[in-house]
Design a protein around this nucleic acid. Structure first.
Lengths: 358, 358
DNA sequence: TTGAAAGCGATACCAA
DNA sequence: TTGGTATCGCTTTCAA
């Protein structure tokens, strides 16, 4: 039966050709059923099927029912390459993260994707961090899919990236940082302000000796630098620094503490650029019989589930990552809808989570 | 200058129209430069530019150079929606994982993506695990992008999913499990055999009392069941079971041990469905002053960096996840190239990693 | 509410 | 080695 439909269809196509040639090879797989096949079966035109799918409210109820039945019967799967090309809307969102192996970024992407999925979009991920391909190459590759929107991590991008992104005119949201001059919209927080808050907090508690265990990562270093500056303004300059490679894991945290101890650090406060590192430091401390937080206090960052309630000796800075993802999605959807977001710079803020008597 | 080019182009288009109408709205953003614009500038035809991009070896060197220059000058970004539609090759691979928040799956996806990226493909991820949308919906959504290949996690799929996938005729690789009857190709290992090996190993060490801390997850439960069966064949039936929710994290591991202790477990071996859980169990044990592995021995699964060298009290089962990703990519590429993979069922195997005197 | 015709930007096929 | 022409499957615009 579909065979017959197929033939008719083929003939019509052939007729349109001025110099008819051999019929093109029959379509296979998913494209063996097209909108037109569904339309034939439902006794309507292709465009009506398209409407039934994309604007069901613009189609009469009985027609809609007929079409729906035909779609199920044929097992029709829309071709979004064709649809996207025709409509100039790919329903694709590109998201660039430093690493998908880092839970803090993944948390954001998950809530971001969730929001967008329910709005009919799919998210395609690009990893910028630890690969050899430049960010420009990555962005170009993603742009060739003609995404309707883009999520970027951070607010610092190479000049050629900025240029390309601006030229593309695609709605864009930057995350994980804040700036008064976003490319388009930004949803994030100030790493400097966080570092200052932590410095003030710990200095206020009376700590005078400090250690840091930070990942070799742009934002981690940003916080560390701001921390040192602020501590200095409190008159504190006795800070041991340990930088560890990405990705951060417990082992690196353990190593970080070992190195601080090697460098002569004994008592005081240690700030870590992630909760994973903080936990590694805690584990190393415990295995060496160092009392936490009595001998050393440990401060993390991110409020990864890890640290939150499970390890009462760890204080940390809470970032509402799911919220960042949701707000980023909302902002992007608004921009895609053509709205000019009233506030292009959204500060999520943060919260210092105290544990025990850090 | 491009402005002029634009006009010419428009006119040509208009001529082809039988009933000429208002010129269509000018293209914006990325599509403001098309293949044809580049071609004009390079003084060749569109198809030649296309060749220069996709089959540079089929284009004369001087032409290629000319075209390359024109591409740079114009900032041309190919439109893969159009290209994919015309060529029936999207250069997109869909990968479905239970969760992107679980490092073990991410490890595989990363090496998988890396291989595919260098072969000119992009990977689009779908999360099947913890969402409300059914796997069928997810697969349909991904199929509408017309991927050239698909990666699936696991070998058990609902009947309607199998049907849809078979009908799509898209090359497919299943992972994380093994079966003599894959849908297409499978790269993985036998969870049963692993569980049996662990059971034999621990029974051989003389352990007679067991506890398990397993995630509420298909493959974890598969292993647990096989473990129990095998232990029973060793005459061991004294097993306390603790099932924890996904995603597994350290807290859940701690809780798992607490529950086993509540249930009266005191000495013996504990097998965990992930290294994260195992580490949580270890941490809880240490905080309670329980000696590991003297009082209780802990066995993990996966050889997550976490456990490997950093925690010498933990034994585990090593799975070569990056290799799984690479092999999956290779198999998929072969299938896309139309080759019939000689061995459609690739067993990765595993390795028991002993630590201290478990 | 529905349909006809004209593209969307690129590639395949054949011819030159 | 290069180019003309006809699609690819769908949506837009406009008309009925």
């Amino acid at each position: 039966m579909f065979q017959a439909t197929r033939e008719t269809h083929k003939k019509r196509r052939a007729k349109r050709t001025h110099t008819p040639k051999k019929a093109s090879t029959p379509r296979r797989g998913l494209d063996s059923v097209t909108l037109e096949d569904v339309a034939k079966l439902a006794g309507v035109s292709a465009i009506t099927v398209s409407r039934a799918l994309n604007h069901p409210d613009k189609v009469a109820a009985p027609t809609l029912e007929e079409v729906t039945r035909a779609i199920e019967l044929t097992g029709y799967v829309p071709n979004l390459l064709a649809g996207g090309l025709a409509s100039q809307r790919s329903r694709l969102i590109a998201a660039i993260v430093p690493s998908i192996a880092n839970l803090v970024y993944v948390d954001v992407i998950r809530s971001f994707s969730e929001s967008l999925n329910s709005a009919g979009y799919q998210v395609i991920l690009g990893e910028s961090g630890y690969s050899e391909t430049s960010e420009l190459t990555l962005i170009s590759a993603l742009l060739s899919r003609r995404p309707d929107g883009i999520l970027l991590t951070g607010v610092n991008h190479a000049a050629d990236c900025r240029r390309l992104l601006m030229a593309s005119k695609i709605p864009l949201v930057e995350t994980w940082d804040i700036t008064p001059t976003p490319l388009d919209v930004v949803v994030g927080f100030s790493h400097e302000r966080i570092a200052e808050a932590v410095a003030d907090y710990l200095a206020g508690k009376g700590y005078r000796r400090f250690g840091t265990v930070s990942a070799d990562d742009y934002r981690a270093q940003l916080r560390e630098k701001a921390l040192l500056t602020r501590l200095a303004s409190h008159g504190i300059v006795d800070v041991s620094i340990s930088t560890v490679a990405n990705p951060t894991d417990l082992r690196r945290g353990r190593e970080g503490l070992s190195r601080l101890l090697d460098a002569g650090f004994r008592h005081g406060a240690i700030t870590c650029s992630s909760d994973t590192l903080a936990l590694g430091v805690l584990i190393e401390a415990q295995s060496r019989g160092i009392a936490v937080p009595d001998d050393i206090a440990i401060f993390g960052f991110g409020d990864q589930n890890l640290a939150a309630d499970t390890f009462p000796a760890l204080s940390t800075v809470r970032i509402d990552r799911p919220r960042m993802g949701r707000l980023a999605a909302d902002a992007l959807l608004a921009r895609i809808a053509g709205k000019n977001v009233p506030e292009p710079s959204i500060d999520l803020g943060f919260e210092i989570v105290e544990r025990e008597t850090t």
